[in-house]
Amino acid sequence: MFNIIKIVFFCLVIWVGFAAYTLVGIPLIIPAAPPVEERLTGEITMEQFVALGDRVFHGKGTCTLCHNALLRAPLLDSIGAEAEAILKDPRYKGEATTGEEYLHESLVHPSAFVVAGFGKKGTNDTVSPMADVSKGAIALSDVEMDAVTAYLQSSAGVDVTVALPSGDAPVEEEEVAEVKPAENATEALMKFECSMCHTHPLIEEGGDTGPDLTPLVTRAATMKKGMSAKQYLVEAILDPNAMIVEPDTYDEDTMPDDYADRMTVTEMNMIVDALLGKEEKKEGGE
């Protein structure tokens, strides 16, 4: 029995010794508490959110294509401050009650208010040539549209009223839901916003930022020496700045030059065929 006590004592001494060493001989580090679960609220500051809006405005949103110094569309430098005034304008048709709501609305329903002189031709400034940015090829997410709104307010110098995104809302990296390939030329022309700048029988309501595409049926073949009609059109779509028709009327760098990345070959062929009149017109032509 005495032996057992001795052994138990010996074991306890070495174990307590080990424990005492960890307590005294080793510096005490208190491990960090488990992190609070990540939510986007609080994770992103307003500065970052505005910066995101900035990037969307100048990048993905393609806003500066028209909202630029060439005044294809009105400048938006101070829209954040003017929004409240627009709500009181008799021509305003929307449902927004605050500046923030208006800004958001104008992204989704651009025709709610059209600045005088910027409407679609022949509509007497009742219809905007701008596309719904939440759809089509631009397809901004809610968070991105909020970010743009925040950016517009911020750059106008007014208080940003947009709430920071909550939940695990996607920011930037997230790819937008797959855009479906167009099924026919009419759809393709809509999808790639050709209608915003060009006119053509397949386009319901065209714009005048770019040249009318209707004459191309006959002219395309002779536009450029040594190029067939199809070759020319392909070049004109994929590399718009290769040749500017009527340089006095139309500016360089206006037409996006990223169609090579965005279009499928089928879509491009559909558009080219349609422009050359090969597509049966019954679908598009009313």
Partner: peptide, 15 residues
């Protein structure tokens, strides 16, 4: 109790 225990705490437990 998801926190990581300190070393002396663990040593005491082990003992």
């Amino acid at each position: 109790e998801a926190f990581t225990p300190t070393l002396p705490y663990a040593a005491g437990m082990v003992t």
